[in-house]
Each structure stands twice: as C-alpha cells, then as structure tokens.
C-alpha cells in the first residue's frame, strides 16, 4: 500500500508534465508582481532595479501585474518610478485593467462601486444609464441605497463584476470588511455568480498577455503569493516562480499542487534563472 502511494505521489501529474513540456519552449514574456516582489511597502527589494535592467536586455516582453482596487496605474507608476524602477505605464496590468477590458468586451455601461482613486483607470467608459455593476473596495458606496440600486440592476440582467472577493483587510484601527461580503450578499439575493477579474483567475493572466502575441506556455510569472501569483499563473498554463520576499512564509511553496516551477530567494535570483536557463 505504501509503495502504491509513493508511486502515486511521485508520478508526474498531467500539469507537471505539461509544465515540463512547456519548459522546452523559448520564453517570450515575463509577468512580474509588484508589492512584495519588486518592493515591500516603500523600499525596493535589494538589487531589484538592477535585475529589471538586466531582464530588459533579454528578448522578452515584460508586464507588471497586480491586484489592486484602489490604485490606478498612474499612482502605481509614480511609486515605482520613485523607487528607481524603469517602467512604462502600458506595461502595467491590474485587476482594474482587467475589469475595464471586460466592460469593453461586453460593451456595457457600469455602475462603478470603486474607490475614487481607481476612477482614472475607467476614463472614457460610459456610465450613464448603467447596465452592469463593478464592485471594488469602496466603503463609501456600500450602503443600503446603493446596494439596492446595484441589486435591481443585477436582477434586471446586468452582469456583476468583482475586482476581487477579499473578506476583510487590516486597517490601522482594526479589521474592516472588504468587497467580498458585499459581492456575496448580492450573489445570494440575485442568484447570480459574480465574475471575479483579479488574480488568481485564469482570465486575468490570459488578459495580461493580450497584445504580446505570447502563448501562456511561453510566459513565466514571478510573485510572492504562492496561490494567487504562482498557482494562478500555472493554472493558466504558464510557469510560476515563487520568491521568498513580501508575504512569503516558510513552506508556502507546499501550498499548491503542482508545486511552483521554481522557488528562489528574491526577484534578482529569479531573473538570473530566467537569463541562464529559459532563453
């Protein structure tokens, strides 16, 4: 019995097999998480700016991908530039970008329940006479009247789009409800499932590659969140590299199956691996 079990565990799953096959294809795109991977709060990860420069010397497309409900691309860019990273705005792909793309794809006019700071990412999207609902982190919008408005729209057929479904987050003075509970409440009342657009959704990673002419098998994702970054990317057919910075905790790499393609100390080490082995 034990022997059988060992064999079952050792046998490469289809996903692992696919990942190994993929490893034989030349790499064309690198997706990089921001918070926890390039920087931790207001400090850059040591050597990260230099590593990014080296990566830019290779023939790969680079995209910076992150889950955010509050910060528009411009704010993110400003912070990263201040930290000495050489990044262009069009290289940033966030959960807000994903929501915007989905709105454009569906050609709908959203009721935007998002933070004011996120609004620049929706510039040019018509919001009059709404026929869709987008929910981000927007406590000022989560009240009875607005919830009823969103509810009636959804009941009349408007799609419900959630930037993410986090249960709560930590504020200086204690825990606070995230967007998840409000999305869950609306899902229950309308019997409709929300479309979640951020990491670790498969569509998020595929959308991030749009316009790069790269297949998922030709891309690698580097991030500090084993499930959302690495697991999500691998589920979309990419390779995933877990870095031991940011939110990483020992043994995080065991949280997903198949395991991360690679786990390394930090972003610079991940870049070294890519330059040496994946091109």
């Amino acid at each position: 019995m034990e022997q059988l079990l060992r064999e079952a565990v050792d046998a490469p799953s289809l996903e692992v097999f696919k990942a190994r096959m993929a490893a034989r294809r030349a790499l064309k795109a690198v997706l990089v998480d921001l918070s926890g991977t390039l920087h931790v709060e207001d400090s850059a990860v040591p050597g990260a700016q230099e590593a990014l420069k080296r990566l830019r010397g290779a023939p790969v497309t680079i995209r910076f991908v992150t889950n955010t409900t509050k910060e528009c691309k411009k704010d993110l860019l400003e912070r990263l530039t201040k930290l000495g990273f050489d990044i262009a705005e069009h290289e940033i792909f966030t959960s807000l970008t994903a929501a915007r793309n989905l709105l454009e794809q569906k050609q709908v006019r959203p009721l935007l329940l998002v933070d004011e700071k996120a609004l620049p990412d929706f510039t040019g999207i018509a919001t009059d006479d709404p026929n869709a609902v987008v929910i981000g982190l927007a406590p000022e919008h989560f009240h009875y009247e607005m919830m009823n408005k969103a509810f009636r729209l959804i009941l009349d057929g408007a799609p419900l789009i959630a930037i993410h479904k986090a249960r709560y987050f930590k504020k200086k003075n204690g825990l606070a409800l995230g967007p998840g509970p409000f999305v869950a409440g609306l899902e229950y009342a309308t019997d409709i499932k929300a479309t979640v657009v951020g990491k670790p959704e498969k569509t998020f990673f595929l959308e991030a590659l749009r316009g790069t002419s790269c297949a998922p098998e030709e891309a690698v994702m580097i991030g500090d969140d084993c499930r959302d970054d690495v697991g999500g990317a691998q589920n979309a057919g990419m390779r995933g590299i877990l870095v031991r910075t940011g939110k990483y905790r020992p043994a995080d790499e065991n949280k997903i199956n198949p395991a991360p393609y690679l786990t390394c100390e930090s972003f610079p080490e991940a870049v070294e691996h890519i330059l040496e082995h994946l091109l």
């Binding site: 009875y144 919830m147 009823n148 509810f151 009636r152 009941l155 249960r167 709560y168 409800l177 995230g178 998840g180 509970p181 409000f182 869950a184 409440g185 609306l186 899902e187 229950y188 009342a189």
Partner: peptide, 19 residues
C-alpha cells in the same frame, strides 16, 4: 417604490466575512 434587499443579503455578507 420597487424591490429592496432583505436581511438575507446582509446575513450572507457577514457569513462570508466571518466564515
């Protein structure tokens, strides 16, 4: 003046938040 969310929606919100 129209349909209104009932207690169930907010009950679900708290259920989801606190598991």
């Amino acid at each position: 003046d129209g349909l209104k969310l009932d207690v169930g929606a907010y009950m679900k919100a708290l259920e989801y938040a606190c598991d």
